[in-house]
């Protein structure tokens, strides 16, 4: 039994806020849901908020990179926001650089980043 992470829509940006300890199946579901929603909603940007996430292992790290790559292909830009210092240090030690994933310190800065790169209508 895997839960689904809710995907919210604000304007042309999809917002995912991860609040639970994700099992691998939930991670894969999220990846699928997002790809579908980007197309369905015509989204230009995706913000994944991981402020509440205590652990990002290689599986979740790969999911973030994959979502970024998929959304780019679907003409949307992904920003991962709110990564904790301990998580960042651990990812570096693990050897994951999340190449191709844009990041911002918090949700506000993440939305601003999308706006700046012309990915959101409120320019």
């Amino acid at each position: 039994m895997s839960e689904r992470v809710p995907v919210l829509r604000i304007g042309d940006v999809l917002l995912v806020s991860i609040q639970v300890d994700l099992d691998d199946q939930t991670v894969l579901n999220l990846q699928e849901d997002l790809a579908q929603q980007i197309v369905d909603q015509g989204a230009r940007g995706v913000v994944i908020d991981i402020t509440a996430v205590e652990i990002v292992d290689s599986f979740v790290g790969r999911m973030l990179a994959t979502i970024a790559a998929i959304s780019r292909m679907l003409d949307a830009e992904t920003v991962v926001v709110g990564m904790r210092p301990a998580v960042a240090i651990t990812l570096v030690e693990l050897g994951l650089s999340l190449g191709g994933v844009r990041t911002a310190l918090n949700l506000e800065k993440g939305l601003a980043l999308l706006r700046r790169s012309g990915r959101s209508e409120r320019t």
């Binding site: 991962v80 926001v81 990564m83 210092p85 960042a88 240090i89 990812l91 570096v92 030690e93 650089s97 999340l98 844009r102 990041t103 911002a104 310190l105 800065k109 993440g110």
Partner: peptide
Amino acid sequence: LKTIVAARLMGA
């Protein structure tokens, strides 16, 4: 070096 990479991962 690792700190700089970590900061980048966080968006700084």
